[in-house]
């Protein structure tokens, strides 16, 4: 994995500390061209990996990349699935089964054989696989060396102690996509323990890591203790605590931590992208 990964929250108005900023970002990135331009800026600054949630709009970004192979041939995407609010809103509207039906690949009838079987036999692993395939469709023809499970699913399964499903996801993306599985979490110490329990060695874990302990469940010390065990490949996210930590101090803390392999950050402006990259590389 590259030392620096570029995130997508700013493109889709995901802002953990201000709803107002969130709206400004949605306005700024209304057109895909502006997103692509920002990705090009990041690429020029030496950040060639884009880690993104599987929003519908990412489909057209991926398509634009495929249409311009000369421009994006060195570009890697790390997909993060699923986009949880899409499913959560569907459950509220359609109920659990209705939501599942509406999000099965294509529609439920066109996947009658595989999907129908999954329903009848209650083969939950197969259902997970079908949903992974549905989310991966938009990335056909793009280099996706690591495929992530979003924190809301990782952590739901973690709390349910359904560790085997985490292992099943890990096995499936390896088998089907020759990719490494990654797990996004807000609970690093507990997740690391769980993944090792089900035999995943050196799991890739993307987790909040910042000097203020923001969204670091169990506390910063417990997180730093995981780094010392040297048995995970850690991507640090939310290094600015969503934006309330002084950026220079935030980078200085994270870049000097032994055991953090990659740093994920997102920014809207060219100046902020270049500045953050420069701080990390300094």
């Amino acid at each position: 994995m590259d030392r620096i990964l570029f995130g997508d929250n700013q493109f889709f108005g995901v802002n953990h500390i201000s709803d107002e900023k969130s709206r400004q970002q949605l306005i700024k990135f209304k057109n895909d061209a502006v997103i692509l331009e920002t990705l090009a800026t990041a690429n020029a600054a030496g950040v060639g990996t884009f880690m993104c949630t599987t929003y519908a709009r990412i489909g057209s970004i991926a398509q634009a990349m495929k249409d311009n192979p000369s421009k994006y041939s060195n570009y890697k995407i790390y997909p993060c699935m699923p986009y949880a609010h899409k499913y959560a809103n569907a459950v509220t509207e359609l109920g659990m089964l209705g939501a599942l039906k509406s999000y099965m690949p294509g529609n439920i009838f066109s996947t009658a054989l595989k999907g129908g079987m999954a329903f009848i036999s209650k083969d939950y692993v197969k259902m997970m696989e079908l949903m992974v395939d549905a989310e991966m469709k938009m990335f056909e023809g793009i280099n996706t060396p690591v495929i992530f499970l979003q924190n809301v699913v990782t952590d739901l399964l973690l709390g349910l102690q359904a560790y085997e499903l985490l292992a099943a996801f890990h096995a499936y993306v390896q088998k089907k996509y020759q990719a490494e599985a990654g797990f996004i979490t807000m609970n690093l110490p507990a997740l690391s323990e769980a993944l090792h329990k089900v035999g995943i060695h050196q799991p890739i874990i993307c987790t909040s890591f910042n000097k203020e302990g923001f969204r670091m469940s169990g506390g910063r010390e417990a997180y730093e203790a995981v780094l010392k065990q040297n048995n995970c490949r850690i991507i640090a996210m939310q290094i600015f605590g969503g934006g309330f930590i002084d950026p220079k101090e935030a980078v200085s803390y994270i870049k000097n931590l032994n055991g953090v392999e990659s740093i994920l950050f997102g920014a809207s402006s060219s100046a902020n992208i270049k500045q953050t990259v420069a701080w990390i590389n300094a």
């Binding site: 953990h16 500390i17 201000s18 809301v152 952590d155 739901l156 709390g159 807000m186 609970n187 507990a190 203020e212 302990g213 923001f214 969204r215 670091m216 469940s217 169990g218 506390g219 605590g241 969503g242 934006g243 309330f244 930590i245």
Partner: peptide, 14 residues
């Protein structure tokens, strides 16, 4: 910001 106001928890889901 909520980051400065919120007490941390031991397990975070949503």
């Amino acid at each position: 910001s909520v980051g400065a106001l919120q007490s941390p928890v031991d397990f975070y889901l949503r």
